[in-house]
Computed example of a mutant assay.
Amino acid sequence: MRFAFKTSPQNTTWSEMLAVWQAADDIEIFESGWNFDHFYPIFSDPTGPCLEGWVTLTALAQATKRLRFGTLVTGIHYRHPAVLANMAATLDIVSNGRLELGIGAGWNEEESGAYGMELGTAKQRSDRFEEGCEVLVSLLTKETTSFEGEYYQLTEARNEPKGVQRPHPPICIGGNGEKRTLRTTAKYAQHWNYLGASPEEFARKREVLHQHCAELGRDPKEITLSSHVRLGEDDDFAKVAADAAALGEQGLDLAIIYLPPPHRPAILEPLAEELAKLG
């Protein structure tokens, strides 16, 4: 099993996040770092501080040398996929090919409503997301893109220069929806992020993903399987390692350790030592 970490840019400060990422860049067991893409804090006081995800991610990419990085995940309705494609290609270039492109259908009603971003029904979100994935992949790989969909329309659209990674930065889709999200993952993604519950539920969702892969003629081994594993405020590193191991027994490839604020670089070494015991 491989390991990563996540720092949500909410209820924290830039200096705290930066210190964690720069420390983690020197700890080999962490292969990647992740943030989220929200405008309000989630699952906490929505009036609290929340730094913008892509600007923060770009700054963290420049402050590190080794870590791969991405958002878990960008709601497709937050940015037009043509804008997102340009952002992703540029960030892949300036980071020398370290970007993981994390995307999802969107879910946060509070911030979407406050900003006048139409979230839509579950079906509308899934339909829009599928269109957005097609547009993104086309713009990241083709010279021009023309597309006529219900949500997006493009006419000989360009996205130059392309990113460093070929055919494009790996796409990570986050979500557990069995009928639509996992099928879209099987069609477009190189990485699926499980939102997190029991290992048994992960195993069941994994099998659904594999069924979609079989129907689409896709080798499921081409898709990395990851999950959030939360570190509590009690810093129980042994529990985190045990939770990751239980998911690993069900086929998890990458455990992404979700670090709670306040973000403290001092916890990284003991966390890494505990994770290393899993081999």
Rank of each mutant, 00 (worst) to 15 (best):
R125F: 03
S126P: 06
D127K: 11
D127C: 08
R128Q: 13
R128Y: 07
E130Y: 04
E131S: 03
G132K: 08
C133H: 01
C133M: 07
E134Q: 04
L136G: 00
V137H: 02
S138M: 10
L139E: 00
L140D: 01
L140T: 02
L140I: 04
T141I: 11
K142I: 06
K142D: 05
E143G: 01
E143Y: 02
E143I: 00
E143Q: 10
E143M: 02
T145I: 07
T145M: 01
S146V: 00
S146M: 15
S146I: 00
F147H: 02
E148F: 06
G149F: 12
E150I: 09
Y151K: 15
Q153W: 06
Q153N: 11
L154P: 00
L154I: 01
L154W: 00
T155M: 09
A157Y: 00
A157H: 00
A157C: 11
R158G: 01
K162E: 10
K162N: 14
G163Q: 12
G163I: 14
G163N: 10
V164F: 03
R166E: 06
P167S: 14
H168D: 15
H168S: 12
H168K: 08
H168I: 06
P170C: 09
C172I: 11
C172K: 14
I173K: 03
I173T: 02
G174H: 12
G175S: 06
N176I: 10
E178C: 07
E178Q: 11
K179A: 12
K179L: 11
R183Q: 08
R183S: 01
T184V: 12
T184L: 02
T184M: 07
T185P: 03
T185W: 03
A186D: 04
A186P: 08
K187E: 08
Y188H: 07
Y188T: 03
A189L: 15
A189M: 08
A189R: 13
Q190N: 05
Q190M: 05
Q190W: 05
Q190D: 10
Q190E: 15
H191R: 04
W192G: 01
W192V: 02
Y194K: 11
Y194T: 04
L195R: 15
L195Q: 03
L195H: 04
P199L: 04
P199V: 05
P199K: 05
E200T: 09
E201T: 08
F202A: 07
K205I: 12
R206N: 12
V208Q: 02
L209V: 01
L209Q: 02
H210S: 14
Q211T: 13
C213T: 02
E215C: 05
E215G: 05
E215W: 13
L216V: 09
L216R: 06
G217V: 09
G217Q: 08
P220H: 14
P220A: 07
P220M: 05
E222N: 10
I223Q: 13
I223G: 06
